[in-house]
Amino acid sequence: MMMQFLSLSLTHTQLDLSYNPIGTDGVKALSEVLKFHGNINTLKLGWCQIGANGAESVADMLRYNTTISVLDLRANGLRDEGAKCLARSFKVVNEALTSLDLAFNEIRDDGAFAIAQALKANEDVAVTSLNLSNNFLTKFGQSALTDARDHVFEMSEKEVNIFF
């Protein structure tokens, strides 16, 4: 019989489940709870093996959650499909989320284009920091994100720091 241990760090406003293999089912259950409850400001789910389907659950939660301002989804194998799910949630007014970390997720240009379009589509987007480092972006994906950053600044004078 194999035992798994879950490492949980919870402060008043931060929930850190990083490095725990909660997977798609775990993040789906967590997302349902955080959709309408809690006062979590920082949610860390790096290295949790959530995949693209897990990103869909997180994206759905972000449509309703009004408290999470920092979201860490590093190294979850989100790929383009997961990035596209998260991009769709940006199109809904979310005044809380300011920092999103998607580093090490095997995201390519298609995912970058989806995120860029979402940033352009929502003039009220609150995101000011977007980390896409250590993904598989070419100059085309980087250019799309840079154009989106410039568009957001022109429309709202809001700085969006994008790292790749």
Rank of each mutant, 00 (worst) to 15 (best):
R79E: 15
G77N: 07
E159L: 09
L71I: 00
M1Y: 14
A87L: 01
T98E: 05
F36T: 10
I115N: 07
T67Q: 11
L137W: 01
N65R: 11
T11G: 02
N161P: 04
L17M: 13
K84R: 12
A83W: 05
E106Y: 10
K139V: 15
Q4A: 10
L100T: 01
G82T: 11
Q14S: 13
F104R: 02
S18K: 05
S143A: 15
F136K: 04
F113S: 06
S9D: 12
E56W: 12
Q142F: 12
D25G: 02
M155W: 00
D16W: 14
M1G: 14
A114F: 11
G54I: 09
K120I: 03
N65T: 00
N94R: 08
A29K: 14
L100P: 00
E154Q: 14
M3H: 12
T42K: 15
A96I: 14
T42G: 04
I68H: 10
E123L: 13
K120A: 10
Q4R: 15
N131M: 12
A126D: 13
F163S: 03
L137R: 01
E32M: 10
F136V: 08
K84V: 04
K84H: 03
A148L: 12
V160S: 08
K158W: 12
L130Q: 01
A116S: 06
Q117F: 11
A121Q: 08
L43K: 01
T128M: 04
A112T: 02
A112K: 04
K35H: 04
A83N: 14
D80S: 06
W47A: 07
S129Q: 06
M3A: 12
I50H: 04
T67L: 03
E123D: 04
E106A: 14
G38M: 00
H151D: 08
A55W: 05
N105Y: 12
F113Y: 09
L10P: 01
T146A: 06
A112C: 15
Q4Y: 05
F5E: 14
K158N: 09
T66R: 11
N122F: 02
A118G: 12
L62F: 07
A29L: 09
N131G: 05
I68P: 08
V58C: 07
K139H: 15
K28V: 13
I162N: 00
A96N: 07
E154P: 11
S99Y: 05
E56R: 13
T98K: 05
Y64H: 15
A126K: 07
S89N: 05
N94L: 09
G54R: 13
L34D: 00
L137I: 01
L17T: 09
V160C: 08
I22M: 07
K139G: 13
V27W: 07
A126E: 06
S9C: 10
L8T: 02
A52K: 09
S99I: 15
K139T: 04
N105I: 10
V92T: 07
M2D: 02
E157P: 15
D60M: 04
V70F: 11
C48R: 09
H151P: 14
S133H: 11
N122V: 01
L43H: 02
S133P: 08
